[in-house]
């Protein structure tokens, strides 16, 4: 079984994100970039599958700030290959562009599964798995929480919301957006990452950046800052009414 894991970098959400001079992107200068957390789940699932059933795990992604870090981390965790697609692109890459770059590379590879994170915090023009699946003409599924080889294909379990899960059987190759792996992503000690770094082993592939249609961001802004809590008073009946109203307004169904 050959599993390709598509990974990417994203601004660390613990950072205070600021908007750059263009007003349409975050200021990428001082922000720390880390591996997308759902991609880490995808990698974990791939490694677990490999450990349970054998096979090969190939990690691939479009180059970005500190992406080597992520690739070395993946190698240290047990990935067999790490591939960096370098197209000289900087800034906010639309999913459509990313998917096209990956699709071009994947068409040259053979594989049984492509796993990626179900989403990323800035994938404004859609989540990678579906877009990539369409470009490759392969079946795909998102919000995957379970994956098992099954006969000639795979059993895929998706979360449908409200705790309902759906299990389907699919014949590969498949593209899946992973929500959660069977176990939390493993810890990889820094010394192992350093070993992987000194061993090298990242394959760099020069690619071209295609163009694609994506929404044009006209303004990026922080939602209205909230200070201290707005006090609802202390008369229980009134407060209760306001609270029920707030809950309803949030779209959480209350019986």
């Amino acid at each position: 079984m050959k599993i390709v894991v598509a990974m990417r970098q994203i601004a660390d959400l613990v950072e205070e994100l600021e908007v750059d001079a263009s007003g349409a992107d975050i200021d990428r200068e001082f922000v720390k970039f880390v591996s997308n957390e759902w991609d880490e789940a995808a990698l974990e699932e791939a490694l677990c599958l490999k450990e349970a059933h054998g096979g090969e795990v190939v990690v691939v992604g479009v180059d970005d700030v500190d992406f080597d870090q992520t690739l070395f981390g993946a190698l240290a965790k047990g990935a067999d290959r790490a591939v960096k697609l370098d197209c000289g692109f900087e800034g906010w890459m639309p999913t459509a562009v990313r998917a096209e770059i990956l699709a071009r590379w994947l068409r040259e590879e053979s594989f049984d599964l492509v796993l990626t994170g179900v989403q990323a915090a800035d994938d404004l023009d859609g989540q990678l798995a579906g877009v990539l699946g369409a470009r490759l003409g392969l079946p795909h599924a998102a919000v995957v929480v379970g994956l098992e080889p099954d006969g000639s294909g795979f059993k895929v379990t998706q979360e449908l919301g409200g705790g309902v899960t759906l299990t389907s059987h699919a014949t590969g190759p498949l593209v899946l957006g992973i929500q959660a792996a069977r176990q939390a992503p493993r810890y990889v000690p820094i010394s192992r990452i350093r070993q992987a770094m000194s061993a090298g082993g990242i394959e760099v592939v020069e690619v071209e950046a295609p163009s694609a249609r994506a929404p044009k961001v006209t303004r990026l802004f922080a939602p209205e800052a909230k200070g201290r809590a707005e006090m609802l008073g202390d008369k229980p009946s009134e407060v209760a009414a306001r609270i029920v109203e707030l809950i309803r307004a949030k779209g959480v169904s209350v019986s």
Binding site: D12, V14, E15, E16, K32, V34, Y187, I190
Partner: peptide, 19 residues
């Protein structure tokens, strides 16, 4: 694990931005 990961990325155990 979470604390070590925070320390590795942001240099503190609180998971706050180093800045």
């Amino acid at each position: 694990q979470a604390a070590l990961e925070n320390i590795a990325t942001q240099g503190n155990s609180f998971g706050k931005s180093s800045r």
